[in-house]
Design a protein around this nucleic acid. Structure first.
Lengths: 206, 206
DNA sequence: AAAACAATTGAACCAAAGTACAGTTCGAAC
DNA sequence: GTTCGAACTGTACTTTGGTTCAATTGTTTT
């Protein structure tokens, strides 16, 4: 996995090197030099007092789908929100420990988002109150009520994007059995194929 | 690092074993058997239709400060919120891939909280709206930026559940051309098939 | 005991999806 | 005026998805 770190200067912090020994540094005016054919993780340092959006604007444009993490000298709640809103996959302290940086790298390189524990806790706190009250659950699709447990299990895996072969391997059954379960699921839910099933389970087709 | 998995039965899923070969299984009525002197990570499976709070109540009591992750057969936004509110450090799909499970384990064992990408995205979105900040951000995922207009059009129809034949008829082109566009889309977005594409476009990559 | 259902699999088969290789047309850009 | 990307199509092929008919085993229900 390749790491590209963007800052005002090209000297990395020791903790960065410890977490990512093979990282390459770039100045903000050298974004064009980032190799376009490889894929990796972008790290962009935001220094004290700088506006996140203006720092990120040009960097995002060069990300080409690669995950971007903001290393902030002064992270706070609203700054993290702004970074994520701008398209970053995560935001952590410039001086975070190498283990934390490695963890962040792993999460975002797999397509995840990363935020620190305290912020996440606060997000959960403020939102759970709101979600809890108006409870938009009633229209809960009870697709699983009609299915046997095994059928539902297979259905969920299909909805997550797995192929029949992958499902068979993971459940240690033959591909034939997977097909049998799926045929039953399609019949019971009156669906045509796995894509329709995915839309139904993921609640996009009501 | 020790892993303890709690379910109604003591047979683990293959993917759990792959992620945590040395995990120990416990039934929910065997919580007292969990060794108190060691420390590790608790995983508790919540099966379809079960109420999270009642499942977690007794488990939390035996956690003794160890992080607890909920493996849910049917994770959704409110369920994850309930789990975190109850004291869990994370919540992911029962059938999550081994790599994901390892990632979750690493995050929570270091004291972090873990939630899937899609939920986090939604949390960030809803909270920034609530906080009255800048909300009208275009979709974070820039999949369409990489595609030509026609490719994006076909991609959207696929994501809505249409077959190649239906798309061909509606766009008044041949099925062959639809396939050509899709091949280009898969290539550009590094996707495997139409189901993966649907998940990507519908923002469900958790 | 009989009936019903859940889970499993085989063989054979058809349909849909996706790839490989090759080619045309049109308009914009250099 | 040549180059280039976009949209489009054909033939041929492989792989994956899905159905039909048929059968075995174990558990639960009646």
């Amino acid at each position: 996995m390749q790491h590209w770190i963007i800052d005002l200067e090209t000297s990395p912090l020791p903790s960065w090197l410890e977490a990512m020994p093979n990282a390459q540094m770039f100045r903000r005016d050298q974004l064009a030099n980032i190799p376009a054919e490889k894929q990796g993780t972008l790290w962009c340092r935001q220094r004290s007092g700088e506006d996140v959006n203006s720092v990120l604007a040009s960097v995002i444009a060069h990300a080409r789908g690669n995950p971007l993490v903001v290393l902030s000298d002064e992270p706070d709640e609203s700054l993290v929100m702004q970074a994520l809103s701008a398209g970053a996959a995560g935001c952590c302290n410039t001086n975070a420990a190498p283990e934390v940086l490695r963890q962040v790298a792993m999460v975002v390189s797999n397509g995840g988002l990363w935020v620190g524990q305290s912020l996440l806790q606060r997000l959960v706190g403020s939102t759970s109150r709101i979600l809890g009250e108006n409870a938009p659950r009633p229209p809960r699709d009870n697709w699983s009520a009609l299915l046997s447990e095994r059928e539902a299990q297979v259905a969920r895996m299909v909805a997550g994007g797995a192929s029949n072969k992958e499902i068979a391997n993971r459940l240690v059954i033959t591909e034939r059995t997977v097909k049998a379960h799926l045929t039953a699921v399609f019949e019971k839910l009156s669906l045509r194929d796995r894509l329709q099933l995915s839309l139904r389970i993921n609640g996009l087709n009501l």
